[in-house]
Simulated assay, not measured.
Amino acid sequence: MVVITGIERLNQKGYVLLESLTAFLIITLCISVYLPVVTDLLIIIKEEKKTVDMVRIGYEQSQKIALGQEVDTSWQTGGNVYEIIVESSQKKKICIRDNHRQRTVELLSYKINLP
């Protein structure tokens, strides 16, 4: 067994401190790069969820038109309130709006063929 004494032992303590600081620096840099990327992705996911909700609302309202039911004027889902506007007397367009965006669904046909 080798015993480290004197100056060699002090140098080893300095090496452990330097190694620890380097590891801490690398971990800090990784986290500082990772957090903004994850934050941006969460914002993009939230916006895309709104787009999917708007398309789903348009689809459901087109189904109501095809079945001869009354179309809703507003829709609330996920904490967002959407305004629904049916354009033209033939009910050929459905506009779905929220505070920032608008989505239009054009209906080519609103008849459902059941077997």
Score class of each variant (00 low, 15 high):
residue 97 R to N: 10
residue 86 V to R: 04
residue 97 R to W: 03
residue 93 K to F: 15
residue 103 R to E: 13
residue 96 I to V: 11
residue 97 R to L: 14
residue 55 V to P: 00
residue 77 T to D: 12
residue 57 I to L: 10
residue 88 S to H: 11
residue 75 W to E: 09
residue 101 R to E: 12
residue 91 K to D: 10
residue 103 R to Y: 15
residue 55 V to N: 07
residue 91 K to W: 06
residue 91 K to V: 08
residue 78 G to F: 09
residue 68 G to H: 03
residue 61 Q to T: 00
residue 50 K to T: 13
residue 86 V to M: 12
residue 74 S to Y: 07
residue 55 V to H: 07
residue 90 Q to I: 10
residue 89 S to F: 11
residue 64 K to G: 03
residue 62 S to C: 06
residue 69 Q to C: 06
residue 97 R to Y: 06
residue 54 M to F: 03
residue 72 D to G: 04
residue 93 K to E: 14
residue 71 V to R: 01
residue 51 T to E: 14
residue 58 G to F: 02
residue 96 I to T: 01
residue 102 Q to F: 05
residue 69 Q to W: 05
residue 99 N to K: 14
residue 63 Q to V: 07
residue 59 Y to N: 13
residue 87 E to K: 12
residue 87 E to A: 15
residue 56 R to V: 09
residue 80 N to V: 15
residue 69 Q to V: 05
residue 86 V to F: 08
residue 92 K to H: 09
residue 83 E to P: 00
residue 66 A to Y: 00
residue 68 G to W: 03
residue 61 Q to P: 02
residue 58 G to Q: 00
residue 90 Q to Y: 04
residue 102 Q to V: 13
residue 105 V to C: 05
residue 61 Q to W: 00
residue 73 T to L: 13
residue 81 V to F: 04
residue 88 S to F: 11
residue 64 K to S: 08
residue 63 Q to N: 05
residue 98 D to E: 07
residue 60 E to H: 08
residue 99 N to E: 15
residue 81 V to D: 04
residue 98 D to F: 03
residue 83 E to G: 06
residue 74 S to A: 14
residue 104 T to S: 08
residue 106 E to S: 12
residue 102 Q to M: 15
residue 65 I to H: 04
residue 80 N to T: 15
residue 53 D to Q: 05
residue 101 R to C: 08
residue 68 G to A: 05
residue 83 E to M: 11
residue 69 Q to F: 07
residue 77 T to I: 15
residue 95 C to H: 05
residue 57 I to R: 01
residue 84 I to L: 07
residue 108 L to A: 09
residue 82 Y to E: 01
residue 51 T to K: 13
residue 90 Q to A: 13
residue 92 K to D: 12
residue 76 Q to D: 12
residue 56 R to T: 11
residue 50 K to C: 13
residue 83 E to C: 05
residue 72 D to W: 03
residue 57 I to S: 01
residue 99 N to W: 08
residue 82 Y to I: 02
residue 104 T to F: 08
residue 92 K to L: 10
residue 106 E to N: 10
residue 99 N to G: 11
residue 61 Q to I: 02
residue 59 Y to V: 11
residue 106 E to I: 13
residue 60 E to K: 07
residue 82 Y to M: 04
residue 89 S to Q: 13
residue 59 Y to P: 00
residue 95 C to F: 09
residue 51 T to H: 10
residue 103 R to D: 07
residue 61 Q to F: 01
residue 93 K to V: 09
residue 81 V to R: 03
residue 60 E to D: 13
residue 75 W to D: 05
residue 71 V to E: 04
residue 65 I to M: 10
residue 54 M to P: 01
residue 73 T to S: 11
residue 57 I to Q: 01
residue 77 T to H: 07
residue 64 K to N: 08
residue 54 M to D: 03
residue 69 Q to R: 07
residue 99 N to L: 15
residue 105 V to A: 04
residue 79 G to Y: 07
residue 58 G to K: 00
residue 105 V to W: 00
residue 74 S to Q: 14
residue 70 E to H: 06
residue 90 Q to E: 14
residue 108 L to D: 05
residue 64 K to T: 03
residue 84 I to M: 04
residue 107 L to G: 01
residue 89 S to H: 07
residue 103 R to V: 15
residue 75 W to H: 08
residue 62 S to V: 03
residue 90 Q to M: 09
residue 70 E to D: 12
